[in-house]
Simulated scan of single mutants.
Amino acid sequence: MAGLTVRQVSESADLDAVRALCWEYRDYLLNFSDEVREAVSFTYQKETYAALMDVLADKHARPQGIILLAELDGVPVGCGMYHRIGEGDAEIKRVYVRDAARGTGAGLTLSRALIDKARADGYQRILLDTSRQFVHAQKLYEKLGFQARGPYSELPPGYEKFLVFYEITL
């Protein structure tokens, strides 16, 4: 058994697996609750999300970003990524783990790997947001040393009510 591994996406097949995971993540969000569905429907309309998936590799390209793929016994089960949003600042996006891999440590391992890579890339701070309803994600980020903060980018009116914002100094 290969166990849990996290590695940088390096081939088109890896990127295809990440895109599939990202679409699963969107579906997960749409089905989580009415409130989350409202927020996702607003920011990740299908056409907008498809356009994002088309430029995913460019948006998170090395050396200013990265896309990581988590595998359990060689099967893709999760992903996470970051990109540069300002001098010394990276933003973590789309950390997602399939239901079948929840409880295996995949989310923690992915998040630690993102932090380690961002530190190695010279970032001084990582920012992220998550749904107010994702209590498990909030606990994970707090366990990793992230501190709650206010929004770090401009948001559409009324959108702030859906999210919790975090940062960690590296």
Rank of each mutant, 00 (worst) to 15 (best):
C22S: 10
V97K: 00
A13H: 07
I67Y: 07
G3Q: 11
G150D: 12
V95P: 01
G78I: 05
R26V: 07
L72F: 10
F42V: 04
L72Q: 11
D121G: 02
S111T: 15
R149S: 14
H83I: 05
A90N: 03
D73T: 03
L21Q: 01
E142D: 13
L56E: 05
V135T: 15
L128Q: 03
Y152H: 11
E167L: 06
Y152L: 10
D27V: 05
Y49C: 00
R94H: 03
V77A: 12
L144F: 02
S131P: 00
Y44K: 01
A137I: 02
V55L: 08
A113V: 14
D54Y: 01
R112W: 08
L127A: 00
L170A: 04
F165R: 06
D16A: 13
L69E: 00
L140D: 09
R94N: 01
P157M: 08
Q8Y: 09
V6N: 00
Y159P: 00
V164K: 14
M1Y: 08
Y82A: 08
P157T: 04
K161F: 02
I66G: 04
L108Y: 15
M53N: 09
L30Q: 04
R102T: 11
L29C: 14
L56V: 06
G158K: 08
V6D: 00
P157L: 05
G3C: 09
H60V: 09
S10N: 11
R84V: 10
R132M: 04
H136A: 14
S111W: 12
L108V: 07
P157S: 06
Q147L: 13
R132Q: 05
K59F: 05
L163V: 09
Q8T: 15
P151L: 02
